Simulated scan of single mutants.
Amino acid sequence: MAHPPRFTDDDPYLARLREVCLALPEATEKTSHGHPVFHTKKVFAVFGGVVKGDHASDRYAQSVLFLPDQLEHEALLQDERFFVPGYYGPAGWLGLDFRTAEPDWDEVGELVESSYRNTASTRLVRALDEAR
């Protein structure tokens, strides 16, 4: 059975996140488990998340899930805007809640790019570096 959508396509946060994610080499979007997912061969960003034990809540519906560098993981968790998402959290992923404070889109871009670099192939990372 397909998961029901957990987003609206006209969400302004999603629109801005799409611009950030789809600007990366060979990035595409699909819907998986009711959420927009950005990927190359592997997922590097997800719009919307949940926390363990609270799967029905829309508390983090307007957030981005990403895979940070390991060295930044604990420091990011000291900031109230970040959370450990269900499903992705055990693999080191974090979420940035867009509702906590107006997003700094430069910061979002850096976090998404870092996640992309942590998941993309060497060829795609090289293409990103050449484009910068």
Results as ranks from 00 to 15, higher is better:
residue 35 H to M: 14
residue 18 R to V: 10
residue 20 V to E: 06
residue 45 A to I: 09
residue 72 E to T: 10
residue 104 D to N: 15
residue 9 D to K: 11
residue 47 F to R: 00
residue 24 L to E: 00
residue 107 E to P: 06
residue 95 G to A: 01
residue 58 D to C: 05
residue 58 D to A: 12
residue 117 R to G: 08
residue 88 Y to W: 15
residue 65 L to W: 02
residue 9 D to P: 09
residue 10 D to S: 12
residue 56 A to K: 15
residue 89 G to N: 03
residue 28 T to D: 09
residue 32 S to H: 12
residue 36 P to R: 01
residue 16 R to Y: 06
residue 61 A to C: 05
residue 23 A to S: 14
residue 91 A to K: 13
residue 24 L to Y: 02
residue 57 S to F: 01
residue 103 P to I: 05
residue 121 S to D: 09
residue 20 V to D: 05
residue 8 T to S: 14
residue 30 K to W: 05
residue 53 G to E: 03
residue 43 V to A: 12
residue 130 E to V: 13
residue 1 M to R: 11
residue 131 A to H: 13
residue 32 S to T: 13
residue 110 E to I: 07
residue 63 S to D: 06
residue 37 V to S: 12
residue 32 S to L: 14
residue 1 M to C: 06
residue 110 E to S: 12
residue 43 V to C: 10
residue 31 T to L: 07
residue 23 A to V: 02
residue 22 L to V: 03
residue 124 L to A: 06
residue 38 F to C: 02
residue 8 T to I: 14
residue 10 D to I: 04
residue 80 E to S: 15
residue 17 L to P: 08
residue 82 F to H: 12
residue 33 H to I: 11
residue 107 E to A: 13
residue 47 F to S: 00
residue 58 D to Y: 09
residue 84 V to F: 11
residue 11 D to R: 00
residue 34 G to L: 07
residue 73 H to N: 07
residue 103 P to C: 10
residue 97 D to W: 00
residue 132 R to Q: 12
residue 68 P to S: 01
residue 15 A to Q: 13
residue 8 T to F: 10
residue 89 G to W: 01
residue 32 S to R: 09
